[in-house]
Computed example of a mutant assay.
Amino acid sequence: MRSDFLPTGFLREVRVWRPGVLQVDHVSTVRGAAWHPGAVTQLEDRGAEGGTRLVLVEAAYDSPLVQELVNEVQAEYVQRYGGPDDTPLSPAEFAPPGGAFLVALLDGEPVGTAGLRDHGDGDVELKRMYVRAAHRRRGHARRLLAAVEDRARALGHRRVVLETGQMQPEAVALYRSAGYEPTAPYGHYADSPHSIHLAKQLVEH
């Protein structure tokens, strides 16, 4: 297992988790901000960034870095919808064995997030899918989405469901181009006229 799967400037103690993934007992940034234990995997990104590396880190939903990024997501919702997403969420919903929360790092810099929370009966919900504005239109969101789907399969889920909105046309276009189709409304915004509910089958019935 190659230790250079981890971003430059990070200290770590690593043990093998499963092929292609590392289990991290401790990761701390050079600034001293602690990460919760999680898994690290690598995605090669050789596009517009020119040889950069996209790394996915599994982190706890209530960890400081995740909350910083979630606050950015919520601020964008305020701009687009006039208020934050007030869906009730618990850190435990994004914890194994049914859930996960991923942070995307580009050469060590956090650039995006995506969470999975178990809905039962083979369904898992995609939440807080986000790429920072300065890193958009470079294919990172599509790579992140594909990686999250792979993670959902590894967790044993058969279908990903999600809720987005009419004021996020870029997100809607991404999901539909990736094979997501309309599904029955569910959850906190099931009755909202502005919500769009989509789903993608990960494995055949």
Score class of each variant (00 low, 15 high):
residue 6 L to A: 10
residue 6 L to P: 05
residue 9 G to N: 12
residue 11 L to W: 06
residue 12 R to K: 09
residue 14 V to L: 13
residue 19 P to L: 12
residue 22 L to S: 10
residue 27 V to S: 08
residue 28 S to R: 13
residue 33 A to C: 04
residue 33 A to N: 02
residue 35 W to L: 14
residue 41 T to V: 05
residue 47 G to A: 11
residue 50 G to Q: 13
residue 52 T to E: 15
residue 54 L to K: 00
residue 55 V to L: 07
residue 56 L to E: 13
residue 56 L to K: 05
residue 58 E to L: 01
residue 63 S to K: 11
residue 65 L to W: 10
residue 66 V to T: 05
residue 67 Q to M: 15
residue 68 E to R: 13
residue 73 V to K: 13
residue 76 E to Q: 12
residue 77 Y to I: 03
residue 77 Y to R: 10
residue 78 V to M: 01
residue 79 Q to R: 11
residue 79 Q to C: 06
residue 80 R to Q: 08
residue 84 P to S: 06
residue 86 D to N: 09
residue 86 D to V: 14
residue 86 D to M: 06
residue 87 T to L: 07
residue 91 P to W: 07
residue 92 A to W: 03
residue 97 P to L: 03
residue 114 A to W: 02
residue 114 A to L: 04
residue 115 G to T: 05
residue 117 R to K: 15
residue 119 H to K: 15
residue 124 V to E: 02
residue 127 K to G: 03
residue 134 A to Q: 09
residue 134 A to V: 04
residue 137 R to G: 00
residue 139 G to H: 05
residue 144 L to Y: 08
residue 146 A to I: 04
residue 146 A to L: 09
residue 147 A to V: 02
residue 153 R to V: 06
residue 153 R to T: 01
residue 155 L to Q: 02
residue 156 G to I: 07
residue 161 V to L: 08
residue 161 V to T: 15
residue 163 E to Q: 12
residue 169 P to K: 09
residue 170 E to H: 07
residue 172 V to W: 12
residue 178 A to I: 04
residue 179 G to H: 07
residue 181 E to Q: 09
residue 183 T to K: 06
residue 186 Y to A: 11
residue 186 Y to P: 03
residue 187 G to E: 11
residue 191 D to K: 15
residue 192 S to G: 00
residue 201 Q to T: 14
residue 204 E to Y: 10
